[in-house]
Write a protein that binds this DNA or RNA. Structure first.
Length: 115
DNA sequence: AATATGGCACAAA
DNA sequence: CTTTGTGCCATAT
C-alpha cells in the first residue's frame, strides 16, 4: 500500500472542522482521526494554535475529549470560547461543556483514505 | 539541526 | 473525582 504522507494535511483538517455544524463541538482526537492521524490529536491543536484561517475555521468548536474546553490562547481565551459556544447553543459550565455527548459531533471519516 | 513548548489523549494509582 | 506519567505530532526560536 502506498503510504506516503506522514504529516497532517492542514487544509483537510480545516475543511473537516468547517464541516462541523453550529451548536455542535468536536474533539482534537476526533479531528485527528478524521484526517487519518489517530495519534495526532496534539498536532491538531498545534494547527489551531497557528490558526492561519482565523474566523474561517471554528477552532472554538474543538474541545478536549473529556468534554472540557481545552485551550484557546490561554485561560483568558477560554472565557471567550465558552461564550461563543454558549451563544451557539453549547452550554458551558465551569469550564466544562454541559451534555457534552449531546453536542458532540463526530466527523465523518469518509476522507480518511485521502491520498 | 536541535530543544523547548503546547489549544491532547489515555491508563494507572 | 484528581493527580501522575507516557506517547505523539507540529510550530517557534
Amino acid at each position: 500500500m502506498s503510504v506516503k504522507k506522514k504529516v497532517i494535511d492542514r487544509g483537510l483538517v480545516y475543511e473537516l472542522l468547517k464541516k462541523v455544524p453550529k451548536g455542535r463541538v468536536t474533539t482534537y482526537g476526533a479531528l485527528a482521526r478524521a484526517v487519518g492521524h489517530p495519534d495526532s490529536a496534539r498536532a491538531i491543536g498545534a494547527l489551531m494554535r497557528s490558526n492561519p484561517y482565523a474566523p474561517t475555521v471554528p477552532c472554538h468548536r474543538v474541545v478536549y475529549s473529556d468534554g472540557r474546553l481545552g485551550g484557546y490562547g490561554g485561560i483568558k481565551g477560554l472565557g471567550k470560547k465558552a461564550r461563543m459556544l454558549a451563544r451557539e447553543g453549547v452550554k458551558v459550565k465551569n469550564g466544562r461543556i454541559v451534555n457534552f455527548e449531546k453536542h458532540y459531533f463526530e466527523i465523518p471519516q469518509t476522507l480518511s483514505s485521502y491520498p
